[in-house]
Design a protein around this nucleic acid. Structure first.
Lengths: 141, 141
DNA sequence: ACAAGTATGCACCTTTAGGTAAGTATCAAA
DNA sequence: TTTGATACTTACCTAAAGGTGCATACTTGT
């Protein structure tokens, strides 16, 4: 059995395997690495949306519906710190800031396209999947 | 700011990962849909690993290191229920079961390849990212 | 004067995905 | 007969991701 005394740090949307706990992250494969970078409920959506070009905070907020300010800001900051996107503060009077992909971020966002296509092409199946999930996977009131 | 109880049927480009709460999940973007299917700490890894062909439970368990039995089984079951993979129980004496991708699952797994490549190609950056994260983004003991 | 929009910060709280450590049934090898 | 491997199951618990709501500093519209 797995006995790892690990803290277990990611009850998130997506996450990859963990490294031994410290030191050099040893990824099993590239996927593992990528997953950790885009781990966060809205990150993939943010990246994909930014493929359209730079966007102001407010625009993102409205585009990525249901996201809270706290989390959106938080994930944007992480992506920025990770070199995935660039924040530009125009130092203007009513705050004006925008976010755009860095080259690294751009390539990452592009790598998401197949997932997007898959979802689009199989939208029917996916709808079915969630119809069922909401159907019989419901017990707690 | 986000108000909450509002169904808000507005025409945004990207939908939030959460449907309005009930009824047909209305995805605007395929990515949104796909993300929900592969949401789970080990699902992408499972899918990607199964691209190699059918595998027994034990093999997966050993391959996807650090995953616990509970979660591995759980995610396998979900993927199976979602029509992403197929479970075969050989009804043998010492249990023997294996999992393989369905055509749907196969296409999904393939859509993960770019992410895998991205991770591999940018492994250096990613290592740096996590080195930094573990560096100064650490405070709790 | 006052509400509203702008991009955030922060304290507090809930939710839940995921981890741990048990146990099950059966057979083979030591 | 005790151990180990197989593929799970279940009860219980934790950590942290994400949500809520309030606050800020400044300006424009009414």
């Amino acid at each position: 059995m797995s006995k790892g005394p690990e803290p277990a740090p990611s009850p998130s949307l997506i996450a990859g395997a963990r490294s031994t706990g410290a030191g050099a992250p040893n990824f099993t494969c590239g996927l593992d690495a990528t997953l950790k970078v885009i781990a966060g409920k809205w990150k993939p959506l943010i990246l994909y949306f930014l493929l359209q070009g730079p966007n102001r905070y407010g625009t993102l907020k409205r585009a990525i519906r249901d996201v809270s300010d706290k989390v959106l800001i938080q994930q944007l900051k992480e992506l920025e710190a990770d070199g995935i996107l660039l924040r530009t503060d125009y130092k203007e009077v009513p705050p004006r800031v925008d976010y755009m992909l860095t080259p690294l971020g751009y390539s990452l966002a592009q790598a998401l396209e197949p997932l997007c296509s898959w979802g689009t092409e199989n939208i029917a199946e996916v709808q079915r999947i969630f119809a069922e999930r909401d159907g019989w996977r419901r017990k707690s009131a």
